[in-house]
């Protein structure tokens, strides 16, 4: 069991490191095509990463070790999330639970590391980005917790792999009102957490409206490469989690080569479809005013709360 779980963790992290830059490439390409552009190709994020790793890493005057450590912590926490979330298979270590509270706390670790990177250089935009980032994180984490909690009540376990296994065993539960409400709430929270439209504009050049981009303004070279890869991994893992909960088929129940191969293919397919759909949807959206964002997130929290209430009221057939 332990060896199997170890193999699965290595496979999941390796696959996500390869796939998440491609996911970002697909999303940029879809957006470019809808804007009438030719697009840079899906491999462009990989080219950007390779170039950043070959560049000099500059430290602004007055920065501390946080500037170098933060990106590594973000990358590590994102890789840990990729290892914990059931993306390719549901086999887990007996002693390391893939509990939703563990996943959310690991996510928060990366969030705090990123906010510290934004603060460290002492520039106005970095501090503004960090403050906005933490505001949104504080509004998003309860929604993530409550929505997955709603999904965990019918299963009787807050382990994500147990939830996914139960959904494979009983596909009818996916279309239940509890599940749908919770998934909608979780999707809005994921969009806010990963800095997508309508909460943050990932391709903006306007410093005053930035959230994620403002925090990384002072990072360069290798540090920037880790920050970018960490954010992409986080986007991939969270979209993958939504995919695993919405369409749990193809996820390997045991660790064998054919099952893992099917799991990896299914993951690539799900991420591709969700990413392309999200990018297409973003074309039609404008960024929300910052002071409207709490309203959106409060709405998603209400949905998650209704899901929890419903899960106690609706008897699962």
């Amino acid at each position: 069991m332990n060896a199997g779980a170890l193999v699965l963790v290595v496979v999941q992290v390796a696959v996500m490191v390869v796939l998440s830059p491609l996911l970002v490439g697909v999303m940029r390409q879809v957006r470019a095509r809808m804007e009438g552009r030719a697009g840079a190709g899906v491999l462009q994020p990989w080219r950007d990463l390779r170039k950043l790793l070959g560049k000099e890493t500059l430290q602004a005057d007055g920065t501390s070790w946080v500037m170098a450590a933060g990106p590594v912590v973000l990358l590590g926490s994102s890789a840990l999330v990729c290892a914990l979330v059931p993306l390719v298979g549901t086999t887990t270590f007996p002693l390391v639970p893939d509990d939703l509270f563990v996943v959310v706390s690991v996510l928060l670790l990366g969030t705090v590391a990123l906010a510290l990177v934004g603060l460290d250089a002492g520039s106005a935009f970095g501090g503004m980005g960090s403050s906005r980032h933490m505001t949104i994180a504080a509004l998003v984490e309860p929604t993530v917790l409550v929505s997955v909690y709603a999904l965990s009540i019918p299963v009787g376990s807050s382990a994500l792999s147990a939830i996914v296994e139960a959904r494979i065993a009983d596909p009818a539960s996916i279309a239940s009102p509890v599940s749908l409400l919770a998934l909608v709430a979780l999707s809005v929270a994921v969009l806010a957490e990963t800095g997508r439209m309508p909460v943050d504009n990932p391709s903006t050049h306007l410093e005053l409206t930035m959230i994620h981009e403002a925090m990384v303004l002072e990072s360069s070279g290798r540090d920037l490469a880790w920050l970018e890869l960490g954010s992409w991994l986080r986007l991939g893992a969270l979209l993958g989690l939504v995919g695993s909960l919405l369409v749990p088929w193809g996820i390997a129940g045991d660790v064998t080569v054919p099952a893992l191969a099917v799991g990896v293919l299914a993951l690539a397919l799900k991420l591709g479809v969700i990413g392309a759909g999200l990018a297409a949807g973003e074309v039609f959206l404008a960024k929300l005013r910052l002071f409207r964002v709490p309203e959106l997130l409060a709405g998603s929290f209400v949905l998650a709360f209704l899901a929890v209430t419903a899960s106690y009221l609706v008897v699962q057939g």
Partner: peptide, 10 residues
């Protein structure tokens, strides 16, 4: 952008 050039903010 199709040739790999992109405007950045920093």
């Amino acid at each position: 952008e199709r040739y790999g050039a992109r405007l950045v903010a920093s």
